[in-house]
């Protein structure tokens, strides 16, 4: 039994099997999620609002119990061994989780005490996380005076106090401007490299998952629809397209079709569309081939499938559709009031 169990968790920081959560007996927030996140990876759970991301994270962080199924963090059951799980995880909820009427330093100090970090380790640890997240200068100011990005970094600092093995971040950059967002991820990246921590984050920003996650799980209506690297997911939708505008008329599409990396060639009016697996690596060879054939190219464009296309393929709807409609409604309501 022990052997089977070890095999089950080997190399995985997080595993879930058939996790379901039903609220108030009617709302099915999660509907049988099976997931495995490898140790040391940055994993993004991507989905629109209301897809079940926060519910899954709250189950994994032992806040609420699943209605059915099992979840483990480094082999520890989140329901039966919750106390042990909480000793090895750091967590930053979506909403603000620091006291604004205390200084940044005081916030960390209180959390260090709640975590039970011994007094002799506190000064060094606090100094370390404050330095790492670039908050040393502002440490003595009240959090009320901080910017959104600084508050997020303080929250991450407090989650890192116990040197967690897994860091859970719920919508880590929601409401932040692009530069603050980048700063947050730069710091997270450093921490991941240095300490080999596994990062599990929820997001509804496709570009954030695309840029920062090593693996992405797409969730919709409580179901995990697909998991893979951004590249794998996009490729699974179909090839990438290189669109060429040519000067010469002496062009033979068959010649291109014979190339091993070319999947299809479509000639449309002035343009030639070449479908390939990976546009970036294929482009040099393609251009070289055309040059040797005496065909001169005047313009090149590459189009790649986006995660939105991935979402469309596997979830059956456009990612932003729901959100956009409600945003428009909200905007209209505001205009009416104004």
């Amino acid at each position: 039994m022990a052997l089977v169990y070890d095999f089950f968790v080997w190399g995985s920081a997080i595993t879930t099997s058939n996790i379901a959560k039903v609220y108030a007996r009617t709302v099915r927030a999660l509907d049988g999620v099976d997931l495995a996140v490898a140790e040391g990876k940055i994993f993004a759970l991507l989905g629109p609002n209301g897809a079940g991301k926060t519910t899954l994270m709250r189950i994994l962080t032992t806040q609420i119990r699943p209605t059915a199924g099992e979840a483990r963090v480094f082999g520890l059951d989140v329901v039966r061994e919750g106390a042990k799980v909480r000793k090895i995880i750091g967590y930053v909820p979506q909403e603000m989780s620091v006291w604004t009427d205390l200084s940044g330093y005081e916030n960390l100090l209180i959390y260090a005490k709640i975590y039970g970090i011994p007094p002799r380790d506190r000064p060094r640890l606090l100094d370390e996380v404050l330095t790492k997240l670039g908050l040393k200068e502002a440490a003595r100011n009240l959090v009320r005076t901080y910017s959104g990005g600084m508050i997020r970094r303080l929250e991450i600092a407090s989650a890192l106090l116990i040197r967690p093995k897994v860091l859970f971040l719920d919508e880590p950059t929601i409401g932040l401007d692009p530069s603050a967002r980048k700063a947050v991820w730069t710091e997270l990246g450093k921490f991941k490299e240095g300490d080999g921590v596994t990062i599990f984050f929820n997001t509804h920003y496709m570009d954030e998952a695309d840029l920062y996650a090593e693996e992405i799980g797409i969730i919709n209506q409580g179901k995990l629809v697909i998991v893979g690297t951004a590249m794998e997911l996009k490729r699974s939708v179909g090839g990438e397209v290189i669109t060429l505008s040519l000067k010469s008329n002496a062009f033979a599409p068959e010649r291109l079709r014979s190339l091993s990396f070319v999947q299809d060639v479509i000639v449309a009016e002035e343009e030639v569309r070449v479908v390939v697996q990976d546009a970036e690596t294929s482009l040099p060879s393609l251009l070289e081939f055309l040059r040797q054939d005496g065909v001169s190219v005047t313009r090149v464009a590459m189009t790649k499938p986006t995660l939105d296309d991935v979402f469309l393929k596997y979830a059956g709807t456009r990612f932003e559709a729901g959100g956009r409609v409600s945003e428009v409604r909200q905007m209209r309501r505001m205009i009416r009031r104004g």
Binding site: I89, Y91, P93, E95, M96, S97, E155, F168
Partner: peptide, 9 residues
């Protein structure tokens, strides 16, 4: 998020 955060300590 304070309550949520405290629950995860």
């Amino acid at each position: 998020g304070i309550l949520k955060k405290l629950l995860v300590t």
